[in-house]
């Protein structure tokens, strides 16, 4: 008769190498789900936010209601948001994605609109004087100049989405949140700590990546500084 193994799993320690090696597949799956949920939601949010911001810019009267609605959406706590969408989507990944899209939308619309508004009037007039039509003006002058503000919003939206995905554990689609949730119920310290740390790592890596993309997209801001 052998006693229970005396490793860090049995002692329920916070930091446990054994956990990493034996649960690698579970961790990998959770990270993958986390990335998918975050990526899809932020992308959908971006696709919806750009036209909304452009419309709000074009027709001034629509800016106030668009901003008001997105602010109200942002005020609703995440757990309540997921719950309110429950009758529409049921217990599914789309539920979590829909909730996250609504949050990213708020941040993105606000930032893109701010970026579009910050385009100097002289720049716009110069483009018009060179014979640019409204569409060409929007695509080749206004939107590129709004990129820094939009990217700032995108970074905040992505980082927030990474951390909000964990709340999706309530419906079983929370990426690393699932591991935190089940770890809480079984007092599994190594699992909770590992999943939490991975969450923060994903957020930081995503933020740095987006910052890099912003640098690549806006070479003129670097030239101006040096």
């Amino acid at each position: 008769m052998t006693g229970p193994p005396d490793d860090c799993l049995a002692r329920n320690e916070w930091i446990c190498g054994e956990y990493l090696s034996t649960r690698r597949q579970i961790l990998l799956d959770a990270v993958l789900q986390h990335l998918q949920l975050t990526g899809i939601s932020v992308l959908i949010g971006l696709v919806l936010a750009v036209p909304l911001a452009v419309l709000a810019r074009r027709w001034r009267w629509s800016a106030a209601p668009v901003l008001a609605v997105t602010t109200i959406l942002y005020t609703i706590p995440s757990l309540a948001m997921f719950s309110l969408l429950l009758p529409v989507y049921g217990l599914s990944a789309s539920l979590v994605v829909a909730g996250l899209v609504l949050y990213s939308l708020t941040l993105l619309v606000r930032n893109i609109l701010a970026g579009l508004r910050a385009v100097p009037e002289e720049t716009r007039q110069a483009a018009r004087g060179m014979g640019y039509g409204p569409i060409r003006l929007l695509l080749t002058v206004e939107l590129p100049l709004a990129v820094p503000a939009a990217m700032a919003g995108l970074r905040v939206a992505t980082v927030s989405a990474v951390s909000l995905v964990t709340v999706g554990a309530i419906v079983g689609f929370g990426g690393l949140g699932n591991l935190i949730y089940s770890g809480m119920n079984t007092y599994f310290k190594a699992q909770v700590l590992t999943a939490s740390v991975l969450c923060v790592v994903i957020a930081v890596v995503a933020d740095v990546l987006l910052l890099g993309i912003q640098r690549l997209l806006t070479p003129w801001t670097r030239a101006a500084r040096s």
């Binding site: 980082v159 927030s160 990474v162 909000l164 709340v167 554990a169 909770v192 957020a203």
Partner: peptide, 18 residues
Amino acid sequence: SNAGRAIPTFAVLVLLLL
């Protein structure tokens, strides 16, 4: 305040609970 955004509330709660 930027760092605070990256840290999931839920994770901190569970960590504190344990």
